[in-house]
């Protein structure tokens, strides 16, 4: 999609009590989505006490339809065990593709996402549910 050769997606894991945070940096697309899914599933399998999976998307540069499919697959994994999948700092393009595809409501968004959403045109889908967000705080 980009004109330069895509550097691979880099994934960093921080595991805490009952929660895991995955930091994504790079492109989430046809070539990298499988790697992302495997990593996230491994995190969930490693600790059955995990109730929250945070995906820090601040370093994400691109997300195509295969990237969305991988997010949906991970959501299927978290939902089946009653865990919540959080998207942190979703860039506008990610929010947009999730909005258009009608899947944004599946993810718990942090305040940065809510902030970005308010900045964009168009109302959110009627059925979208968001976490109660604290007052917007400037971030990044």
């Amino acid at each position: 999609m980009t004109e330069h050769p895509c550097p691979p997606l880099t994934l960093a894991v921080e595991a805490g009590p009952g929660a895991v945070r995955l930091r994504l940096a790079g492109d989430l697309d046809y070539d990298t989505s499988e790697q992302f899914v495997e990593r996230a599933q491994a995190c969930l399998a490693a600790d059955h006490a995990v109730r929250d999976l945070f995906l820090d998307c601040s370093g994400l540069r691109l997300c195509d339809s295969m990237g969305v499919a991988s997010l949906l697959l991970i959501h299927r994994g978290t939902a089946s065990r009653g865990a919540v999948l959080h998207l942190e700092h979703p860039p506008p393009f990610l929010r947009r593709i999730l909005d258009v595809t009608g899947t944004l409501h599946l993810f718990a968004l942090d305040e940065a996402g809510r902030e970005a959403e308010q900045a964009e045109d168009g109302p959110p889908p009627a059925d979208a549910r968001y976490r109660a967000a604290p007052p917007p705080a400037p971030s990044g």
Binding site: G102, L106, P125
Partner: peptide, 13 residues
């Protein structure tokens, strides 16, 4: 018009 993608989720709107 808006809606959910097809083929991945059990319920669509």
């Amino acid at each position: 018009t808006r809606g959910t993608l097809v083929g991945a989720l059990p319920h669509i709107e």
